[in-house]
Simulated assay, not measured.
Amino acid sequence: MAEDPRRRRQALLKLLLMAGGLLAAGALLREMGGVPGTAWVDGTIRDEGIWGETVFVAVGAALTAAGAPRQSIAFLGGYAFGTVLGTVFALTAQMLGCAAAYAWARLVGRRWAERRLAGRFGHRLRPLRDVLAGSPFQATLALRLLPVGNNLALNLLAGMTALKAVPFLAASLVGYLPQTVVFALLGKGIRVEGAWQLGLGAVLLAVSFGLGVWMWRRHRAARALEGG
């Protein structure tokens, strides 16, 4: 059945509002002179060399594993180290946190993860689990590219269902990258008052979202054809 054109227009409108809101929020935060966490970066991380980088990665990994938004880690990475190094260190922290949560759910806390996921997501748990089990790399990549959803929940679900580690982590690495670059750009833009970084971040977020939606729909269509 063809997709409702009205739903397509609504999705496009939401995407434009998200990108515009991101740009406006970044400009507002820049005018305010900072965001939560930047004082910690200024006092503990920046200009501290290898020590500061190590502390940032360790704290970022712990926060990601505990459920903190991975985008906030990328933002602070960009604020502390600039776009390139901020992306590298934030992505390292995100992957360590992802692997830790995955390993916890798979090896130690499977029953705890089951209770948490079932309580929060209930009716959506089984279909998503089946999709991930059928195509771990493609499905994980599509979900990571979308700027919505719960990073910790996906990590726990993958571990709980004993999803193969290599495709899950590889897809997470690739899928994390676009938004990590976006928010590192925003962090750098806040620090140096770079309007072009904020604008480029909004554009890249829109591209990431569109690519994630396209991949997810393509993946679901392929599975439907296989089932038919």
Rank of each mutant, 00 (worst) to 15 (best):
E3L: 10
E3S: 14
E3Y: 13
R6W: 06
R6Q: 04
R7K: 13
R7G: 05
R8V: 08
R9Q: 13
A11H: 07
A11R: 11
L13E: 10
M18R: 11
A19W: 13
G20T: 12
G20Q: 02
A24E: 11
G26A: 01
G26E: 03
L29D: 03
R30I: 02
E31V: 05
G33C: 00
G33I: 00
G34T: 00
G37K: 01
T38V: 02
W40D: 03
D42Y: 01
I45F: 01
I45C: 05
I50Q: 12
W51C: 07
G52K: 05
G52H: 05
T54M: 12
G60M: 06
G60C: 06
A61F: 07
A62V: 12
A62L: 14
L63V: 08
L63Y: 04
T64H: 07
A65W: 04
A65V: 12
G67S: 10
A68Y: 07
A68W: 12
A68D: 08
Q71L: 10
S72M: 14
F75L: 15
F75P: 09
L76E: 08
G77V: 14
G77N: 15
G78L: 12
Y79Q: 05
L85T: 15
V88C: 02
V88I: 11
V88H: 02
F89S: 02
Q94E: 14
Q94M: 09
M95E: 02
M95K: 02
L96P: 06
G97M: 04
G97L: 06
C98H: 12
A100C: 03
Y102N: 01
Y102Q: 05
A105M: 01
R106T: 00
L107W: 03
V108E: 00
V108G: 00
R110H: 03
W112L: 01
E114R: 01
R116G: 07
R120G: 11
R120T: 11
F121H: 12
R124M: 07
L132S: 09
G134F: 12
S135M: 06
Q138F: 14
Q138D: 14
A142I: 09
R144S: 14
L145F: 09
N150Y: 03
N151S: 04
N155Y: 00
L156D: 01
A158M: 08
G159R: 00
M160Q: 07
T161L: 13
T161C: 14
L163Q: 07
K164N: 11
A165T: 05
V166C: 06
V166Q: 05
P167T: 08
P167K: 04
A171D: 03
S172F: 06
L173G: 10
V174K: 11
V174W: 04
G175M: 05
Y176K: 09
L177N: 10
Q179S: 14
F183L: 04
F183N: 02
A184N: 03
A184K: 05
G187M: 01
G187I: 03
G187L: 02
K188G: 15
G189M: 01
R191P: 01
V192M: 05
V192I: 15
A195L: 11
W196I: 11
W196S: 09
G199E: 11
G201E: 10
V207D: 13
S208I: 04
F209L: 15
F209G: 10
L211W: 12
G212D: 07
W214F: 15
M215A: 09
R217H: 08
H219G: 14
A221Q: 10
G227K: 04
